[in-house]
Design a protein around this nucleic acid. Sequence first.
DNA 1: GTAACAATGTTAATAAAATAACAATAATCA
DNA 2: TGATTATTGTTATTTTATTAACATTGTTAC
Lengths: 207, 207
Amino acid sequence: MKLPGKTVERLSKYRRTLLECLNEKRNFIYSHDLAARIHITAVQVRRDLMLIGYSSVLRKGYDVRELIDTISKIIDSEESIHVAVIGIGNLGRAVAGYFKGKRSKLNLVASFDNDPQKINKVISGVKCYPYNDIERMIKELDIRIAILTVPLDSAKEITEEMVRYGIKGILNFTTIPLNVPSGVYLEEYDMITSIEKVAYFVKENKI
Amino acid sequence: MKLPGKTVERLSKYRRTLLECLNEKRNFIYSHDLAARIHITAVQVRRDLMLIGYSSVLRKGYDVRELIDTISKIIDSEESIHVAVIGIGNLGRAVAGYFKGKRSKLNLVASFDNDPQKINKVISGVKCYPYNDIERMIKELDIRIAILTVPLDSAKEITEEMVRYGIKGILNFTTIPLNVPSGVYLEEYDMITSIEKVAYFVKENKI
DNA sequence: GTAACAATGTTAATAAAATAACAATAATCA
DNA sequence: TGATTATTGTTATTTTATTAACATTGTTAC
Ligand SMILES: NC(=O)c1ccc[n+]([C@@H]2O[C@H](COP(=O)([O-])OP(=O)(O)OC[C@H]3O[C@@H](n4cnc5c(N)ncnc54)[C@H](O)[C@@H]3O)[C@@H](O)[C@H]2O)c1
Ligand SMILES: NC(=O)c1ccc[n+]([C@@H]2O[C@H](COP(=O)([O-])OP(=O)(O)OC[C@H]3O[C@@H](n4cnc5c(N)ncnc54)[C@H](O)[C@@H]3O)[C@@H](O)[C@H]2O)c1
């Protein structure tokens, strides 16, 4: 099954919302209710669920637990997938600290840095390894995904190396566009572009 | 002129790339060259530039300086626009520190928090004010844009207040979907969704 | 000077995403 | 029970975004 990226994004949001429902002891939720919580339309929800082949049968809304399970089967791996933060600076630490708080199939197992002050210490809940050991550690810890928070000038080279050593997914926080071969999935996370977009639309509204 | 959001995003990236060109003492750049640097197509570049009404006349590529100016005229405001970070925790500090390093039309002028340890101190290069003063300070400092990095449970209430006090744009780092009235621009920045998307496509590739 | 080329701007076509329309059916209630 | 309502799943339509096609026009080489 090949889902559109946009649908995958929404599935992630659906699941998060559904987990909140469980907390509130709600066991059923209507499509329009789920939609309202994330500010989209009910049709969009139903269409996405159609794409993943989920169907509720009852007309009393979706079974929250069941839908969580269905979505998890789609977007999660069987086994937990190992993640590392590359460059445990200001942003890297924030992200690492945040991740360690969650339990999920995504398991933050290491960080890497080249600052002697940092290596071989536990920072934001995760052990920092010397970047020079990354080839070995990717294999040893079976790391699949890298969260890239190194300075701009080293981002390109580090990416090439990581890909060579077997990394399959990269979440890029630097503002450098990266080149990855097919078979490696890259998601760009461009804060500057986001804020400039906000600024543009704020300006346009004002005028 | 009403530009598509996607085009605005790319304009921000074009400008950043063009500024790099200046550093490299390149004064002209072809559409296909600019495109290659951010991994899109030359047609996309030309189409975006058509939308903003820029035209090069020469066939020796775009004049880098001229294009930077043109884009800046479109996406920047005349005067600098004031930004604040709300919740100067781990993520807020990283973002603030990063912003203070740049000079641009976007000017980070304050942060707000309710932690007595933090208020009235300079953190990551920016003064932290008590959140209780936010109404007054938004007016006093003419703050237009808020970068929201508070804990989940306070995000909704804080957003409503800020909007009431005149904030016009919000970059939301929390994973709570926010409600804003029309006239206020909201950009969601959902890290968890991004990483789950990476995980999904990594998994799919593997299978 | 002019033919060949290279790069642009624009229109046309395609693809992707969102929205609308609607038929089907369980639940509700007179 | 049977009509009514509410909600779903799916197909059709519209909108938006991307890609392709192509005519235009400086530039270059001869
Ligand atoms: N902080 C933000 O909010 C923010 C926002 C947008 C983009 N970014 C980008 O994210 C990246 C990190 O930002 P930051 O604020 O955390 O910077 P930072 O300087 O605090 O952190 C960078 C870390 O990378 C490490 N490092 C440097 N070279 C390395 C190498 N070759 N191998 C391994 N580790 C190395 C450094 O020791 C440091 O710990 C930068 O590229 C920045 O442009 C940050
Ligand atoms: N750290 C990350 O990488 C990350 C990733 C994704 C999402 N987020 C989201 O970003 C937000 C912040 O994350 P964090 O890791 O920086 O958390 P944090 O706890 O380090 O920071 C939160 C800050 O907000 C302040 N605060 C709390 N209540 C407040 C209030 N009512 N008014 C003003 N300030 C208040 C706290 O004093 C603290 O300084 C959270 O909502 C989190 O879910 C963070």
